[in-house]
């Protein structure tokens, strides 16, 4: 018998598969997995793999820079 996580995951994956919308998944990854790490670390160059990603990457970079700027003016915790 599959546990709760496996059931939920299967359900989620099947939803994504039905949707078949890769840009949505990629958008989600860009919003969460890169985040401020990109700018703060300075170790990553944003790469553009396809025409559809240009806007995503630029938006992400802008958001990351904005967060960095905000962080720099916040007093240390």
């Amino acid at each position: 018998m599959r546990n709760v996580d496996e059931l939920a995951r299967a359900e989620t994956d099947s939803m994504l598969e039905e949707e078949g919308d890769e840009p949505l998944i990629l958008s989600d990854l860009l919003n969460r997995v890169l985040d401020k790490g990109v700018v703060i670390s300075g170790e990553v160059t944003i790469a553009v793999a396809g025409v559809d990603l240009v806007r995503l990457d630029l938006r992400l970079l802008l958001v990351a820079v904005e967060r960095l700027a905000r962080k720099s003016i916040e007093p240390p915790a």
Binding site: V4, D5, L7, A8, E11, T12, D21, P23, L24, S27, D28, L30, N31, R32, R55, L56, R59, L60, V63
Partner: peptide, 26 residues
Amino acid sequence: VVESPAPPVLAARAHLVARENVARYV
């Protein structure tokens, strides 16, 4: 709350959830 999510997403939320609540969340 994901601020200004990248297109084509219009709104996005991320949540921290206990494992036992994952199926209910979905």
